[in-house]
Each structure stands twice: as structure tokens, then as C-alpha cells.
Design a protein around this nucleic acid. Structure first.
Lengths: 161, 161
DNA sequence: CTATATGCAAAGATTTTGCGGCGAA
DNA sequence: TTCGCCGCAAAATCTTTGCATATAG
């Protein structure tokens, strides 16, 4: 969802700043991550990366997301379903996730005062705030339309939201 | 959290209320869960349950926690490390978790106004609040000795907390 | 040139499931 | 008696790793 240009993607730049070698594969994965505005799991990242360059293996995707997570460039999410999902770390404001318990859809929302609140909590407990994870689960309020689909717990091929 | 008596554990009672058969194994697992004041993973639950009754298999533990989670009796947590951890759903106030990024220790904290805040967020987005998950990651502040010591307990490396 | 990365496949780790037998209600 | 539950082990997932080769810096 960002610059489709030929220049380095935002995440590729971060990789360089962190002293990582920019191989072809890594550059492609970085671009996929930079362009994503959802929360793809490894399988989905692999699919998207493969579409751009077929010389990429899943192992590399796993190694890359792991590395980027360690560097703080990526954040891992768990929305249930057993697979880790990733999204780029944001610089300033964070956003959180509301998961529709009926269909697993993820809605992002912001809450500016939230992080400040958590910083204070951390401080009160004697910690420096590093990051946070907030997931809200809700049921769509039945005001206007469609009946909720059964809460399918085993979405094998959900890909991303 | 601690009725070591011969009567049904709190969770066992909930099982009955939900129409589940109370087999010997299930009763033991229910007791282990009722007595736990940490966040055991399946392996740890299996260990504790086995100590009370050796005729229990891991498969049953997996099946049980899954069932109880579906019934809303248990909540699954993900503190990183790849394994799901469980804790009993609380009736009234909720507590949240602060994870020490340096050693993985988990500290519980409360924040009464928090749930109300989240209820309002959900409402604003057109949802009814179902539940939430909040994990805060922090680094222990080295400086001020007077920093409030966490009034909660923490854990060990391997199995639970 | 050397430290990193990668592919591939095998190994790990965690969780689920098929099936025959058992037991709670 | 009936239907749910259990143990066992195989299988399904998801993720990591050993090793030989390739390549960025």
C-alpha cells in the first residue's frame, strides 16, 4: 500500500539501517511487507513474495520475519488460528485490533490516550514501556443487516485480514 | 483459587452448568485449572494433572482446554514462546499482563477504567464488547530503587506463569 | 575474501484426529 | 443404553535447522 516504485521499500531501508545484507529475496520480502496493509501470515507472505520472484523459499520467509521481528522492524500478532501474523512496526502512534468473533475479521482502531495510559502503568510497576499488544473481541451489534455467519473456528485458509 | 477440598472445583461446577460430562480426567483437569494462579501451558497442565491421576493423556488435556475455551470457561493467552497458555475466565474485573522483555517474566496488573474504555471503543465501532486481551511489554527500570515493586508474582523460565 | 544468506529437505515442536473401547447420565 | 469421552498413536500443522552453495559488502 505504499511506494510501488523501483526504489527501496521503507522496510528495505530499515534493513539497511540495521546493517542487514540486502539480497534479492530480502528485498522482495521487504517490499511485500511494506506494501501490505493487512496482517499476512508466513504462508501469505510467501505467496506474495513468490509472485514477485519465484526464487524464494518459505524457509527464507520464516528466517526473515524472525530477523525483522528481533530488530523491531516487524511485530508479530496472534489473532487466533494458530499462525503468527505480521505487520510493520509503526513509528509514532500505534493502532489496535478489534476482532469480530463471528467471522474473524479484523478492524483496526486507534486510541491516542491509550499508549500514554500504558506508559504510566508500566512506570508505576517499575518498567520502561517497550511495546504493547491490544486485541478487542466483539460481536457486531445487530442493527441493520446480515445475519452473522457461524463462528468458524478453523479457518485454515484465511490468509490475511 | 484454592479449594483443595473434596467438593467440585469451581471450574468443574462450570462444566456441569455447561452440560459437560464430568469424567474423572475432566474433574482432575478442572481442579488443576481452578487451583492455578498462573498461566500454565498444556504441557504443564498435563504434568500437574498427571501428578494427581496418572491415567490422563495429553490428548485429553488438549481436548479439554479447547472445549473449555469454546465454552468461555478458559481463556487462551499467547506470551510468545510458541505455546498457548491458559487461565480461567474471570467474572468481574479483568487483569492484564506486563511481560518483562528481558526474562519473559509475567506480571499481572489491573486497570479498572480500562475495560470501560474498551467497551466504549467497541460501541463506537458498532460492536458489543465480548472480551479483550492486553499485553504490555517493558524493560525493568534499573535506576530508581524506590520503584514500586510489582505486587504480583512472577515466573520461571520453562513451564508456566 | 568473509561473513551472511539461501534452498532444500529433514527434524522439531505443538496440536489435532481416527478408532476401538469405556463410562457418566 | 447411549452418546460423549478417553488413550494411543498416527497425522497434520507450523517453524526451525544442518549443510552445501551463493553472494553482498
Amino acid at each position: 500500500m505504499k511506494s510501488q516504485s523501483a526504489e527501496e521499500s521503507r522496510i528495505a531501508q530499515l534493513c539497511v539501517e540495521h546493517g542487514l545484507k540486502m539480497t534479492g529475496q530480502r528485498r522482495v520480502i521487504a517490499r511485500v511487507l511494506s506494501d501490505a496493509d493487512d496482517h499476512p501470515d508466513v504462508e501469505e507472505l510467501y505467496r506474495r513474495a513468490s509472485a514477485l520472484d519465484s526464487r524464494i523459499s518459505v524457509a527464507t520467509v520464516y528466517r526473515t520475519v524472525r530477523l525483522l521481528e528481533e530488530k523491531g522492524i516487524l511485530e508479530r500478532r496472534d489473532f487466533g488460528g494458530g499462525r503468527a501474523r505480521y505487520e510493520a512496526t509503526e513509528g509514532g502512534r500505534h493502532h489496535y485490533h478489534l476482532i469480530d468473533v463471528d467471522n474473524g475479521k479484523v478492524i483496526e482502531f486507534e486510541d491516542p490516550e491509550h499508549e500514554e495510559l500504558m506508559r504510566r502503568v508500566a512506570e508505576r510497576l517499575g518498567f520502561d514501556f517497550v511495546s504493547m499488544r491490544l486485541e478487542l473481541f466483539g460481536k457486531k451489534r445487530p442493527q441493520s443487516q446480515k445475519a452473522a455467519k457461524p463462528a468458524t473456528r478453523s479457518s485454515k485458509k484465511g490468509s490475511a485480514e
